[in-house]
Design a protein around this nucleic acid. Structure first.
Lengths: 220, 220
DNA sequence: GATAGTTTCATACAACTGTTTGAATTGCAA
DNA sequence: TTGCAATTCAAACAGTTGTATGAAACTATC
């Protein structure tokens, strides 16, 4: 088994580069240069570039999901099996937002890598990603227990919108800052979390009777 | 000037392939094969691959923005300079949603291409994309006129969340269908539009006093 | 300290990329 | 028809990619 030093140096370098520049722009030669190892080391230790990406993604996936589920479980136990919807949503979007936003030096490479993975969707990742549905289903279940009056469709749409706001805000944080001329403070992570959770909660709890039934006045 | 046949064949083929498979996976040889023209034609007519992408994006950008602004203008004129916030939001997200969702055969290649462009962000597009901020500012202005009591920060966050829900729903439509076991009907475009608009409107109009001021009870 | 197994290294390889070239072909005006 | 420009084409180019090779360097066991 030896030192494992090269292996982990490659993993760390690859994660850093992918997080910063995306999958498309990072070559094996970039990775080995950043890691300070030989070009052949990647194929020796991981088999192929795709397997390196896959290992990176699986590891981080498990960690992120565990973190989110930990918050969720704790909340549900505290509430005797039923957690407030805000807390569930916070467990869903909080970890990712905290990892990806905030002052530059505090951002986690892991979280930024995961966002890249959720955006670019290279083949090795796409293959694994289907498992994430099972993970989201656990949140859907908790939400259903929290809001027993809501039907499934609304639950799923709420879940979808919560993830939408979190991910989009991360991806387009630069543009939002520019658009608002700095008025939207993306470094105040807890405020961002509060905003996302607040809107998602409204989406899930408001009696949105007017959205489906009525006249559907199209603006065109 | 001649027939221009080759030029437009390339544009059409490129847009189709990029919309379907993304920028990363489509090579010049794929494009010319699809278009039925010679490999050198791209460089002859457009100068380079990047310029081809740029032309495609600029054309579609202008068209999409014009469509959105048309709806916006009409609404504001009808309201004497002030349009209801729902109508503004509908003008913002409606055209894109209608183009990208709905029954397979009705989806517009142009809209799907634009979504790709908004996701993958290759260099030639990134350069152009900054202009889109000016376009969004026009919507921010209309929203401000519609909701004069709201401060700018809330306006920008509402705009951000509206785009977030629309784009994310398009990008992850397949996953949402799978997650909800088909219960969320992505083919009913007007329902999707209504949901996005409804939630975004709540985000912009609800007295969300609880989000900023209070105790900030973090779940961790 | 010799040996066997693991790991590193420089280098080469084959495949693919966007681009260029220069000759062939076309279309059209005189 | 002749002549000239615009366009198409097959072929080659130079660069980059991920991967494979076989020799060298290391490591630990006896």
């Amino acid at each position: 088994m030896a030192s494992d030093h090269t292996r982990s140096a490659i993993l760390a370098a690859a994660e850093r580069l992918y997080a910063d520049r995306g999958f498309g722009d990072v070559t094996l030669r970039d990775i080995v240069a950043e890691a300070g190892v030989n070009l052949a080391a990647v194929n020796y230790h991981f088999g192929s570039k795709d397997e390196l990406i896959a290992e990176l993604f699986v590891t981080r996936s498990i960690a992120t999901n565990r973190e989110r589920l930990r918050e969720l479980k704790a909340a549900e136990e505290e509430g005797g099996g039923r957690a407030p919807i805000e807390v569930i949503l916070r467990a869903l979007v909080g970890p990712t937002l905290r990892g990806c936003l905030g002052p530059e030096n505090q951002r986690s490479t892991a979280a930024r890598f995961m966002i890249r993975a959720s955006i670019e969707s290279v083949p090795p990742i796409r293959r694994i990603k289907n498992r994430e549905i099972d993970h989201l289903r656990k949140f859907a279940g908790a939400m259903r227990r929290s809001l027993p009056d809501r039907n499934d469709v609304d639950i799923y749409w709420g879940l979808n919108f919560a993830l939408a706001m979190a991910h989009h805000t991360i991806r387009e944080s630069e543009r939002l800052t520019k658009l608002s001329e700095g008025k939207c403070d993306l470094d105040d992570v807890e405020d961002v979390v509060a905003r996302v959770v607040s809107v998602a909660t409204m989406a899930l709890t408001a009696g949105r009777a007017e959205a489906k039934a009525p006249s559907k006045v199209a603006a065109r």
